[in-house]
Design a protein around this nucleic acid. Sequence first.
DNA 1: CTCTCCCGCCACCCG
DNA 2: CGGGTGGCGGGAGAG
Length: 910
Amino acid sequence: MEVNCLTLKDLISPRQPRLDFAIEDGENAQKENIFVDRSRMAPKTPIKNEPIDLSKQKKFTPERNPITPVKLVDRQQAEPWTPTANLKMLISAASPDIRDREKKKGLFRPIENKDDAFTDSLQLDVVGDSAVDEFEKQRPSRKQKSLGLLCQKFLARYPSYPLSTEKTTISLDEVAVSLGVERRRIYDIVNVLESLHLVSRVAKNQYGWHGRHSLPKTLRNLQRLGEEQKYEEQMAYLQQKELDLMDYKFGERKKDGDPDSQEQQLLDFSEPDYPSSSANSRKDKSLRIMSQKFVMLFLVSKTKIVTLDVAAKILIEESQDAPDHSKFKTKVRRLYDIANVLTSLALIKKVHVTEERGRKPAFKWIGPVDFSSNDEELVDVSASVLPELKRETYGQIPVCAKQKLARHGSFNTVQASERIQRKVNSEPSSPYREEQGSGGYSLEIGSLAAVYRQKIEDNSQGKAFASKRVVPPSSGLDPVAPFPVLSVDPEYCVNPLAHPVFSVAQTDLQAFSVQNGLNGQVDVSLASAASAVESLKPALLAGQPLVYVPSASLFMLYGSLQEGPASGSGSEKDDRNSEAPATVELSSAPSAQKRLCEERKPQEEDEPATKRQSREYEDGPLSLVMPKKLSDSTDLASPKTMGNRASIPLKDIHVNGQLPAAEEISGKATATCSVSSEWGNPSRNTDVEKPSKENESTKEPSLLQYLCVQSPTGLNGFNVLLSGSHTPPTVGPSSGQLPSFSVPCMVLPSPSLGPFPVLYSPAMPGPVSSTLGALPNTGPVNFSLPGLGSIAQLLVGPTAVVNPKSSTLPSADPQLQGQPSLNLSPVMSRSHSVVQSESPVYMGHPVSVVKLHQSPVPVTPKSIQRTHRETFFKTPGSLGDPVLKRRERNQSRNTSSAQRRLEIPSGGAD
DNA sequence: CTCTCCCGCCACCCG
DNA sequence: CGGGTGGCGGGAGAG
């Protein structure tokens, strides 16, 4: 085996660009985190590539055989390689470094599969063998084997926001092998991911990776369901009681109806296949359901903090007619499993709620919250609950939060800018972080209170938006219903910022940023970060989002901007967009499928297409909203890139678009904001990102209406990008269709700017980091992101940029994140694809920019179909090969039939 | 000790 | 029947 592999590699091996990463890896290796590596890998070719490759390679590597016992291994061996495998090989071959690494890993790999993962990570660090040995010897600690870590690795293999075109198939076996774990573990992960629609089962042993595109929708639906179920109340009740435990009786708990039914609904919603409820038959979905419910609890919770005991109780109650307390322990175990996955997704982080009685393990939601504002009731509940919490922890609310509170709903860019300024001014030296810092993690409770307040405030302001969202009448119950609900949530955008804030302390961020350097790679060394903050494990993740953001999103913006003017790549569809929104979307983009999937579910029957679109946008953590209005052209923008994704060099893009875009922008920009800034100090590191090809894809064009305000140099380079046009959030701007919320403004630290393609216009002052130059791309072309820490970029969404809720969090905005968290609200355009930074890395919220693309690419008929129907990628074909590039392979791929589930998907149609 | 949660037995189902 | 799934809970690492 080994030989073969090597050979192949050798043959292929020309070192290619990728190597870069590999190399870096080695360097980075320090950390050990596997994640990092993987993520890196991912970034490279991120999406498409399959992470698996690497991993497999490991396995494949000679060592495999020797290695061990693992069945998986055997399998692989047994199996000649699949095409996918071959691809992987090739890829690996491409970068010898990587290969080597892999090998080493494999070698070292502990006997136990389990160990592998851990081992790998270690290896990564050390590229060297010696190190490895050590690691080997070290037994993987339990932590190393933890589901959370495993999940991160798992996630690292796939792009958070895969291009629509890309379809990734997840082979459980492969994954298990690559990660060195039993399949059973993979099931745990996949089930949770599936509950959030990040993946869907395609066939036996095969899951399709959808990425986070639909996550917002999913969350929205869950939120809705949670509301319907009155989880808030339950939680509030329990919390208040403090969980005295079991005393809590749901007597009322669900007014709606049976829990069961609800549960099913959940599932359904997740999978629109009612009919098949049979599929659900059984318990099987219990974990999924449980996961969804768990998430719902967070979404419903004002505080966004859920203690395990409360969650367990609620779950027990619901799940069974006769709640067995005896199961409490078991439930808690499961919740931990789920929580680990969710943590890896950066949706929650572990915290402890200190109650009078003592500390309780709990998790805090750090994911997007805003998709819809439904706070109203929440407030009430929270009110009751919060008080207690607050006092315990601490009370102060960070300024940031207050600001946010101020109004996330619709605020103007101007406002946003003002805010920003204020902050800056207020604390010149101290970045936002500090503000947050006050809280530290300890905040939890305090944060809750803050949140609570915010919500209240927000509600008043924000409600308008909320109202927008369409609520399907009771549809919630319907399996399908849930999705339908999605309405636009202009607000949604907001979240991103919030999360990060909470989750990561500045320090962490800094460290993080430093480590990561944010290079273009974006890879993020989450792992490293994680390592740094061990305690945080989860937290890291949470913080992570930041990481991603930058590059991709920026890129996106940039691209979009460019496009606006230029539009070259374009594509066809522009018109369509405007024309028939709904249709367009679906049909239009290949990539759309993803979105579509999401959308479909929801079925927006009601909703106008526009809404949907908006939703889509939402998906991306960062969404840039670009109103298409600019011109139709903008719409167009798209796309082609999508298809190309990797192919195009960023440079080109930059070149093309850059200036013009900037100009346009500037022109548009109505306001300029100057920020004083000292956000962050720029840390030196601004590494340039490499533009990932992926990004390229993003390039699309959209039009954005952004204003780029450069901060005077003095400001630190803070630049603000405003969307010039965006209208009030709700309003649909351009086409009128979409409500857009768009990005009100983006603030960038100057340093970062340099890299930032978009905004900078040539005019940009030089402040930008020279570093940029270093990067290959240099120049405008690249937008490299400076180290996170250094650069804080702030993107404010017009509307709610700040999400109220989240905002409440103490975090400091921008900096905290260290990363630029951009939210881009996608413009409404009809189709936008969200692009993710390549680094799939983890979680993060990667920045996903929404593009408008018409049809992204080449949609094959298949894809199209799929998209509509299946919510997600159920069709095998859609999934695409893991390794293979979707392109041909996909086609070639058997589109196997869908399995039951696949079929089901159509539910959306329903 | 408690908190976590890994690990894997074994029951379901499905094909 | 065999294999994919995944419920479930013992028991042990970590703190």
